[in-house]
């Protein structure tokens, strides 16, 4: 794949080179699809929503002011379309939590995870992530995998920056709680 920045391909598309959009699709399809798939938990629906999101991005490309990254803008479209799709199935699924001020120490699960082999670490993590809600999975993925800032995530998931920070804190705590339970049950099984 070419190493030009997204802006290069956006400019080409806006100058009439429609095929340059394929580079943007190739570059961002996995993360876009992962967001939709984690939200909807259905591959076919997620693929449809991701395609719709790319098409919507193409149609609105002229209005994209490049104040944010193209990826942030695209993920916001994917997220919004996924939420709309989810709301058709489960209304009122998203509520904004109140802030909380509590500290979170290095959990026991991290030590246990360190002792595991790489493939086992991956297995338990994926299981623990699956137990998080759709929104929680998206937030943690964007923050730790895509390394987006809280500000960028806030734009994508339509929350305030402080809410994103609170949610990140809670999601991480929840993730380690799930991990802890999974690892404990595994230890019990081994005994």
């Amino acid at each position: 794949m070419s190493s030009h920045p997204d802006e290069h391909y956006i400019e080409r598309v806006l100058n009439g080179d429609q095929s340059s959009f394929a580079f943007l699709v190739e570059r961002h399809k996995n993360m876009a699809f992962t967001i939709a798939n984690r939200m909807l938990r259905n591959r076919e629906e997620a693929e449809e929503i991701t395609q719709d999101a790319f098409l919507k991005a193409y149609r609105s490309l002229k209005n994209f002011k490049q104040k944010s990254k193209f990826s942030t803008w695209l993920y916001k479209i994917v997220y919004n379309l996924s939420v709309s799709q989810l709301r058709k199935k489960k209304p009122n699924v998203y509520s904004i939590d109140e802030d909380e001020n509590q500290r979170f120490e290095l959990p026991e699960a991290t030590y246990k995870m360190d002792e595991l082999e790489h493939k086992d670490q991956k297995k338990y993590l994926e299981k623990a992530i699956e137990q998080l809600s759709e929104e929680e999975q998206t937030i943690i993925l964007l923050f730790y995998h895509e390394e987006l800032s809280s500000e960028e995530i806030a734009k994508i998931v339509n929350l305030s920056v402080s809410n994103v920070k609170v949610k990140l804190f809670r999601v991480r705590k929840k993730l380690y709680e799930h991990l802890n339970l999974l690892l404990k049950s595994e230890t019990k099984n081994m005994l």
Partner: peptide, 22 residues
């Protein structure tokens, strides 16, 4: 830990399907 988990991938013909619509 999170970066160890892999991203999901859509079907092989995903890009061509999007481009057909584009």
């Amino acid at each position: 830990f999170i970066q160890q988990t892999s991203l999901d991938s859509p079907g092989e013909d995903f890009t061509s399907n999007v481009m057909k619509r584009v």
